[in-house]
Design a protein around this nucleic acid. Structure first.
Lengths: 224, 224
DNA sequence: TAGATTGTTAATCGATTAACAATC
DNA sequence: TAGATTGTTAATCGATTAACAATC
């Protein structure tokens, strides 16, 4: 056995893109939003310390987060160029290359998400909704067409859509997920209150209001 | 200085309630949902191992989580009594003592949340909505009255409502939060894409779709 | 009894925070 | 230069996972 040449510098790069911790990644949108506001106020530079202060975050945490995404080091005494930083974040957040998605379940929440104009700022383009209810099938919601379930496989495959959003009742979530996967979907954003089993290779992100609420109300009880 | 009598057993109790890790707490609703299904199928006992398997979770993690909420230890070879476990979780999740809430911002998402019937299963009772739009003020949404903002302070104070749900555009979030706090709200569930500054003592939970999406789509990019 | 399942103790991992040296 | 702000290294903390003994 040859001694292997090991490449284990920390923050190790994989070609070009260094790996960003999940926790950092989930804070980036918060920074992004903050920076946009500063930019629109005409602030050319932003320091990690004032940003931490305004967002009620730990200063070291913010500095580390910024260091891991910024292509240009921050300047002592100045901070970071607002615009440049925004651009760097855009890349890591994937806000510049569009992801197409389909949404299944055009009920209350589904309708809201279809109508939500903000997704395009996040690089997400929901191209169509699907449902079984004849009252919504064939209509437009938020400018997006709503089709019957029979159209799903074909459309997803033809457009090569990668992301599926599930907003159906819990009982139907698994069936819908299977359908999406067999149509070639690579990732699922699940708003249904149900566990979904998926073949390895398909990514899932569960959105769980009940869980958030649980943490919140438990903290509320502790106060007494 | 006297040597102090130290009470630092792990999982240390604070009177009666042992402290449950946040991570555990956020998984409880998932277990709860799973257990409800098992109970409705008539399964008297549930083992942590089969549960872990079905939910694609680590078995030790589930065992630990259950151990920290169950009032009765699980029986080797049998598992836990489904019904008993559900009851124990109910307590920790606060699903049995109702929390009243008001919701501010009866737009798309606000309407959806007002109409959502599931909250009552989570011990949450949204008693009213508030908005500035004369088209919704005075109407009922999901069986809940919608009032103008001028009614907010009085109603919150009179009913002693503890929780405020914010579903207004980002730009108004801080103003609304201040209003809620000055009316006596103790906790805020924020769906607006904005950072909110609060006096210490008031709890906040930010619901951040953009953050979830960021994590998801970054994992999706990695695949290539 | 043997085996499944439990609870617990120890090892690992990732994220946060503290301390500090570098620099514009 | 002095001071604010940076980046980095080390310490701490919490959560996950692995190993194992206890028990129905």
């Amino acid at each position: 056995m040859h001694p292997q040449i090991v490449n284990d510098k920390k923050g190790m790069k994989d070609e070009k893109t260094l790996v960003i911790p999940k926790a950092t990644l989930s804070r980036l949108p918060i920074y992004y939003c903050y920076l946009q506001e500063r930019l629109s106020e005409g602030q050319e530079f932003v320091s990690s310390s004032t940003m931490a202060e305004s967002l009620s975050l730990n200063a070291v945490q913010v500095r580390k987060d910024l260091a891991s995404v910024s292509s240009v080091p921050g300047r002592p005494k100045m901070g970071f160029r607002t615009e440049l930083l925004l651009n760097d974040m855009k890349t890591y957040l994937g806000y510049d290359n569009y992801n197409e998605a389909v949404l299944v379940g055009v009920g209350g929440l589904g309708k809201t998400l279809l109508q939500y104009p903000g997704f395009k700022n996040y690089g997400l383009d929901v191209v169509a909704g699907f449902d079984v209810d004849p009252n919504v099938v064939g209509r437009m919601v938020g400018g997006k067409p709503v089709y019957g379930m029979d159209k799903l496989e074909n459309l997803v495959r033809r457009l090569g859509v990668q992301l599926g959003i599930i907003t159906v009742p819990g009982a139907q979530a698994q069936i819908v997920a299977d359908l999406l996967v067999s149509a070639g979907i690579k990732a699922i954003w699940n708003f249904a209150p149900a566990h979904i089993d998926l073949p390895s290779g398909v990514i899932i992100k569960n959105e769980n209001l009940a869980a958030s609420l649980a943490v919140l109300s438990s903290r509320l009880q502790e106060e007494d």
